[in-house]
């Protein structure tokens, strides 16, 4: 195995090209190292991107919060801008593994490993993020649904493409986001369920809602029925309840020997959805928590 430390984006692309697709980009590596050892993933060359200064930046640029792909979950959740604009993202980042994992793992990695219940990726998914990808052909942006190819499979080929940053549009005053996690243990455990939501509320009514849930399918699954139904609905306990029920229409959870049966997950998903919506209403002072 070769281990290359890149100092610039250009150098990453150069290394990837040289390796002819047999390399893999390495950021935190908290999953990749174990996956390579178990044979789940293959890489002859690892390209370490954590020393590229521009990939470490977290900054506000033209109405977006930009998070460099090599910024660690700890750096993100402690960042004042993140905490100011997206407390739910900070919360999601803080529930991945443990603080020891968060100290090296990245948000980009949390998305690219494509585990359906990845907490940080879930919290991010409703914020309308744009992933900035660079490869030989140039730079492009893509959205959440273009990132997930399957269970634990990303559309991004880490042997050819580098994610440089994640851009998140800054919220308006009447918008807020939330993240709910149903967990057997706060640390060192995947959630039984997680739900993320973002909404705009005007005059006590939902203008729009983005609602995603996991692990109920491939990646962060959109609760499309609930989202559509919620538009224009009054912010109330009744509304949350109906939305919770509708969320089930898009959810197909599996049974896990540890983290809940299909039945249990179906029973509690509506509860998590309700709580996620209530959290938003509370943040926007529309309701009391």
């Amino acid at each position: 195995m070769k281990y290359l430390i890149a100092n610039s984006t250009a150098e990453v692309l150069e290394f990837l090209k040289e390796a002819g697709g047999t390399a893999s980009i390495l950021a935190g590596g908290t999953d990749l190292i174990l996956d390579i050892e178990s044979g789940k993933k293959k890489a002859d060359t690892l390209v370490d991107v954590t020393r590229i200064p521009e990939l470490k930046k977290i900054e506000e640029v033209d109405g977006f919060l930009e998070i460099g792909a090599a910024a660690t979950l700890t750096e993100i959740q402690k960042n004042p801008l993140v905490r100011k604009y997206f407390p739910s993202l900070a919360k999601g980042c803080k529930t991945v593994g443990s603080s020891l994992i968060q100290n090296v793992a990245t948000l980009a990695g949390n998305v690219i490993t494509a585990q359906p219940a990845a907490d940080a990726g879930m919290a991010l998914s409703v914020l309308d993020p744009r992933f900035v990808l660079v490869d030989e052909e140039g730079t492009r942006e893509c959205g959440v649904d273009e990132m997930y190819a399957g269970f634990g499979v990303s559309t991004l080929d880490s042997g050819r493409t580098l994610m440089t940053k994640i851009k998140i549009p800054l919220p308006n005053k009447n918008e807020a986001a939330s993240f709910q996690r149903l967990e057997l243990r706060k640390s060192l455990s995947l959630p039984m369920l997680n739900v993320a939501a973002m909404a705009s509320i005007k005059d006590g009514k939902f203008e729009w809602v983005r609602l995603r849930m996991a692990p109920v399918g491939k990646g962060p699954v959109r609760a499309a029925e609930a989202e559509e139904w919620l538009v224009g609905k009054e912010v109330s306990a009744e509304t949350f309840k109906k939305a919770g029920e509708l969320a089930l229409e898009n959810a197909n959870p599996r049974s896990n020997p540890l983290r809940g049966s299909k039945e249990y997950r179906e029973s509690t998903l509506p509860v998590m959805v309700r709580r996620a919506l209530l959290e938003i209403a509370t943040q926007l002072n529309v309701m009391e928590g």
């Binding site: 443990s98 057997l184 243990r185 706060k186 640390s187 060192l188 455990s189 540890l258």
Partner: peptide, 9 residues
């Protein structure tokens, strides 16, 4: 990770 003994929190 798959055995839920208590952590500090």
């Amino acid at each position: 990770h798959k055995y839920m003994l208590p952590t500090m929190d």
